[in-house]
Simulated assay, not measured.
Amino acid sequence: MTVTTGNPPGDFVQVGATRDGLDPYLDCARRRGMRAVLVETPAYLRWRRLLGRREFDVEVAVARPQDPDAVRAALAAAAVAPGLVLTGFERYVYAGFALARALRVAPWPGAGDGFRPLDKREQREALLRGAPQVAQPRFVPLGPGDGDAADRLGFPHVIKPADGGGGLGVPLVDGVAQRRRALDRVRALVNYGGGAFSGIVAEEFVKGPELSLQGVAHEGNAVLLSVCEKLTCLEEVRGESDLSGFREVGHVARPGDGAPPALRELAQACLDATGYRAGPFHVDVIQGPAGPVFVEMGFRLSGGGLVALVEKATGADWAELAFRTHLGDAAPVRPPFPDGGRTGGESV
């Protein structure tokens, strides 16, 4: 793929390395002649070198990439002139958007003039206010000593950090004693990169097939690229023989053109309720008896090899479409798939 542009708008800054090693934004930046800058912790930069990952043009070590002020200072010291700031790791998505807004560079203001990514509790509250038609599990925010407030959810239910990533600290509990141990365990955890979670939420457990939607928001409109069936399993929480947590073990992807109207409407409702107007997104849902049930949303590309899977299943370069949206190159368009969209892909 060749992209021809005029003068590059500035440096491309990626806050956080991808954990799957694909680095799709690096390719997008180089097609445009943009200097590619990676911000990461010193330890993870060393780990990337040991793994033989591709090098960015500039690599900036920051002890706490989740701190936008620290990232901004480090970029200035390295003589980096950002023109586009995106995140490669879920933990740093909040800092990435805050940094772009402070520097007044893309994805600001296209993603939304006052947009900030919402954590899992805030997403549920935003949908209750702005899209009450969207089904979602009943939930209870839990503060210190609030465990019993979740009794009204019944059992089983799920305990999860409001801003944890990658399934960090998400046990399934089936009784008061289990919930107490689960809460003690989650409260003892720290988020990726250190620091406390923004909160803890108890959610009703909804049983059903799990799906994940991958797309790009453009001028507030959802362009749905693919729908994945998520393959998950329950596994014992280490050190807690009677507590189980969730693990994603694979995905089966199909083109979004064939998605049922209910899933398309849910994706659009999520954008409307959260105020997210431009950029990549993914939405996790459970297919309940009465239709899709919202689980959570991410304002970034998915990890776990999903970028490659989306391209395999649909022909769409998800990262490239995100770049085009943010830089105003063109509206994202799903490419026609050679066999009419009958092919799926698997990633395990």
Score class of each variant (00 low, 15 high):
residue 52 G to F: 14
residue 77 A to L: 15
residue 282 H to Y: 14
residue 316 A to P: 09
residue 97 F to L: 09
residue 211 L to N: 00
residue 260 P to M: 07
residue 323 F to K: 01
residue 20 D to M: 09
residue 199 G to N: 00
residue 159 I to R: 00
residue 346 E to G: 15
residue 143 G to M: 01
residue 144 P to G: 02
residue 114 G to C: 03
residue 253 A to W: 02
residue 304 G to I: 01
residue 176 V to N: 08
residue 330 A to T: 05
residue 276 Y to Q: 08
residue 177 A to Q: 12
residue 339 D to S: 06
residue 194 G to A: 11
residue 104 R to T: 14
residue 5 T to E: 15
residue 164 G to H: 04
residue 7 N to V: 11
residue 202 A to N: 04
residue 176 V to F: 10
residue 165 G to F: 05
residue 154 G to A: 03
residue 128 L to H: 09
residue 214 Q to M: 06
residue 196 A to D: 05
residue 286 I to N: 11
residue 255 P to Q: 03
residue 174 D to N: 15
residue 254 R to Q: 14
residue 86 L to E: 08
residue 128 L to N: 04
residue 23 D to C: 10
residue 173 V to R: 13
residue 146 D to Y: 03
residue 229 E to K: 12
residue 186 V to T: 02
residue 329 D to Q: 12
residue 263 L to D: 02
residue 34 M to W: 04
residue 5 T to D: 11
residue 219 E to I: 06
residue 339 D to T: 11
residue 211 L to F: 01
residue 216 V to M: 02
residue 294 F to I: 07
residue 317 D to K: 03
residue 227 V to H: 06
residue 342 R to M: 02
residue 266 L to Q: 04
residue 100 A to R: 03
residue 253 A to G: 08
residue 104 R to Q: 14
residue 336 P to G: 04
residue 167 G to L: 07
residue 40 E to R: 09
residue 121 R to W: 00
residue 121 R to E: 00
residue 170 V to T: 08
residue 96 G to P: 08
residue 308 A to L: 15
residue 210 E to H: 05
residue 48 R to K: 14
residue 145 G to V: 01
residue 271 L to E: 04
residue 279 G to L: 00
residue 236 E to R: 14
residue 194 G to K: 10
residue 340 G to V: 10
residue 257 D to W: 12
residue 165 G to K: 01
residue 201 V to D: 02
residue 181 R to E: 11
residue 245 G to M: 07
residue 191 N to P: 06
residue 271 L to W: 02
residue 269 A to G: 09
residue 14 Q to P: 05
residue 312 K to D: 13
residue 253 A to D: 07
residue 37 V to T: 14
residue 74 A to L: 13
residue 345 G to N: 06
residue 1 M to G: 08
residue 189 L to V: 11
residue 289 P to W: 10
residue 187 R to C: 07
residue 278 A to G: 05
residue 175 G to C: 08
residue 32 R to D: 06
residue 1 M to N: 06
residue 115 F to C: 01
residue 275 G to Q: 13
residue 109 P to V: 11
residue 278 A to F: 06
residue 181 R to Q: 08
residue 74 A to K: 14
residue 89 F to Q: 01
residue 51 L to H: 12
residue 116 R to F: 11
residue 257 D to T: 12
residue 169 G to D: 01
residue 277 R to C: 09
residue 266 L to K: 05
residue 103 L to S: 05
residue 63 A to Q: 12
residue 9 P to C: 07
residue 265 E to D: 15
residue 304 G to V: 02
residue 118 L to C: 02
residue 21 G to W: 15
residue 244 S to D: 14
residue 235 E to Y: 15
residue 2 T to Y: 13
residue 298 G to P: 15
residue 284 D to Y: 03
residue 200 I to C: 00
residue 26 L to F: 11
residue 288 G to D: 14
residue 318 W to R: 03
residue 159 I to K: 00
residue 27 D to R: 13
residue 329 D to R: 09
residue 173 V to L: 15
residue 67 D to M: 12
residue 266 L to W: 02
residue 133 Q to T: 14
residue 126 A to M: 00
residue 153 L to G: 04
residue 287 Q to E: 12
residue 166 G to M: 10
residue 126 A to Q: 00
residue 232 T to H: 10
residue 235 E to S: 15
residue 265 E to Q: 15
residue 3 V to H: 13
residue 17 A to H: 06
residue 121 R to N: 00
residue 46 R to A: 13
residue 143 G to P: 01
residue 90 E to R: 11
residue 80 V to Q: 12
residue 130 G to K: 09
residue 292 P to G: 14
residue 212 S to F: 08
residue 240 E to T: 15
residue 23 D to R: 07
residue 190 V to I: 05
residue 88 G to N: 05
residue 332 P to D: 11
